[in-house]
Amino acid sequence: MIDIIDVGCGNIQSLTNILTLLQVPSRAVNSPNQVKSNTIILPGVGSAGPYMDKLKESSLDQAIKKHHSEGKRIIGICLGFQLLTISSEEDGGTECLGLVDAQTEKIGSNQLRNCSHTGWEHFQIDTEYFNAAECQAQLGLTRKRKLKGRVFYNHEYGVCSTSEDAAHLEIPNKMYAGYSSMVVQKNLIGIQFHPEKSQVTGLNLFEMML
């Protein structure tokens, strides 16, 4: 069972759909006492300030931190990934969960106004990447060791990770150099793109991660 954090933001149904395709049971949770599974997913469509406010109002922020301190798995997707960092520049500055030693910054803040990153990028990974960060798949959904394909991004803020404890993949596009595509740190997996909407590559990545 996988718990998907539901605070009224985010495309919960997209995650449910892809997990159903993989025959992995999941449920949406909106209060701390519902968080009971070994893996939680923090989904990602929304704005950092209102999303964090809702996590705090429901005390889910504390439940997520407790889940992390118990060594259980957290997967943050897009905004959900950004909320795992220390803080975000979005909404005039937002204090985040602080589980990944990184900051979330506005993309290209010194360049054109309203710069964002929307589109498909090349993606390549192998299981060594997860192994190096001491992050093992738990459900054994695939024996695939290498994955190559394309993934879909839609974000205007990016994670700048400096943590030496984490394995990083940068967005493979010079325009977004320095921003993380994916960060893995033991039981934490942060993904900037939307694997749940990245077609076959997304499906295969979920199989490798879970």
Binding site: C9, G49, P50, N154, H155, E156
Partner: peptide, 9 residues
């Protein structure tokens, strides 16, 4: 709408 979806959306 931006508060709910984010400006990127």
């Amino acid at each position: 709408a931006i508060n709910s979806f984010g400006r990127q959306a």
